[in-house]
């Protein structure tokens, strides 16, 4: 920020110009300024401007939206409507719902491939992973998986899709080319949310009943650590070296050192924290009970603000967008 201000004050010397370029690159990579948060009781997505800390738009979607995958390169966001048995498509440019796609009998978890070409949806009642092509928003495959599939995550190279099989205490590993399950990883009790570290080397499974996090080495899928966290871990986000896990029943975020496999600290949050993301130097935490989106300093967890949104906000998935 100060580099930008300095550059504005005087003619851009080469060094200052470089600083501007670096600052804007950092902004594009980690400082996505909008959070698209599905609100399950008010059947809408609240778009929070993280700079002004205000709701910039409210987008009506299907019944009981829970999960979201922003696919920036496709220019769209996809929202699972748990009671609507559908996925709503949002055009990021107009912030309007453009379609509702039939999506099994209980769509919850959702993730987009890194290239934005596909969206993967877990069907909670159908015990399947539904695959959509984002070019025409058609469903192209149904991959049978285990019981009560919940969270979905994709490896950074797009080759593997991971699905939490909540009631089987395992994670299904799906080959994205073959569109078939090629492995199952055993977890603690009732894995719900999943996350892959940005370097693609670690898969985290959050076990909502046994209150711990399994860390698997990728691509092999070898179990590396099981880390105790707070009550009911529910959402995960990453920065370079750390993972941040919301503990729904403890009103806290556990900070995890990924290399050491160690829990470093617990930071207090608003009640029932769920979806979480890293945006620049802040953590964005969705508070289901308080109906707000909380901002915490990434450095020390200091609480900055809680922005009021719709009712029962979830933010289950990748909910940040640059527009």
């Amino acid at each position: 920020m100060s580099a930008v201000a300095a550059a504005r004050r005087r003619p851009p010397a080469p060094k200052a110009a470089l600083a501007v370029v670096l600052a804007s690159a950092a902004c594009a990579a980690g400082g996505a300024p909008f959070a698209y948060v599905p609100c399950q009781a008010s059947h809408e997505v609240s778009v929070v401007d993280l700079e002004t800390r205000r709701v910039a738009a409210t987008i009506p979607v299907g019944r009981s939206p829970a999960g979201i995958a922003v696919a920036e390169s496709a220019g769209k966001a996809y929202v699972t409507n748990a009671d609507g048995r559908s996925v709503s498509v949002i055009d990021l440019a107009t912030r309007k719902r453009t379609a509702d796609l039939p999506a099994g009998s209980g769509p919850v978890g959702i993730a987009a491939s890194p290239d934005g070409r596909r969206v993967y949806v877990a069907d909670w009642y159908g015990n399947a992973l539904l695959v959509f092509d984002t070019r025409d928003d058609r469903q192209v495959a149904t991959v049978p998986v285990g019981h009560a599939p919940a969270g979905v995550a994709v490896s950074p190279d797009g080759a593997r899709v991971f699905v939490a099989e909540r009631d089987d205490d395992s994670v299904a590993v799906v080959d994205a080319d073959k569109l078939a399950v090629v492995d199952h990883l055993a977890t603690g009790e009732h894995p719900f949310a999943l996350g892959v570290s940005p370097d693609g080397r670690a898969l985290l499974a959050l076990n909502v009943v046994s209150n711990d996090v399994d860390v698997f080495e990728l691509p092999a899928g070898r179990a590396r650590a099981r880390i105790a966290v707070g009550l009911a871990p529910y959402g995960v986000a990453f920065d370079g070296t750390r993972a941040y896990v919301t503990n729904q029943h403890a009103a806290s975020v556990s900070v995890i050192d990924l290399a050491a496999g160690k829990r470093l600290a617990d930071w207090p949050t608003a009640d029932y924290p769920e979806g979480i993301a890293v945006a620049g130097d802040r953590l964005v935490v969705v508070s289901w009970m308080e109906d707000c989106v909380q901002l915490l300093a990434l450095a020390d967890g200091r609480r900055q603000a809680c922005v009021d949104v719709g009712r029962n906000p979830r933010g289950f998935g990748q909910f940040l967008s640059s527009r």
Partner: peptide, 13 residues
Amino acid sequence: DAAAHGPTRQKVS
């Protein structure tokens, strides 16, 4: 106790 549940959690305050 920990069996599968409905799709939409509710709250009362």
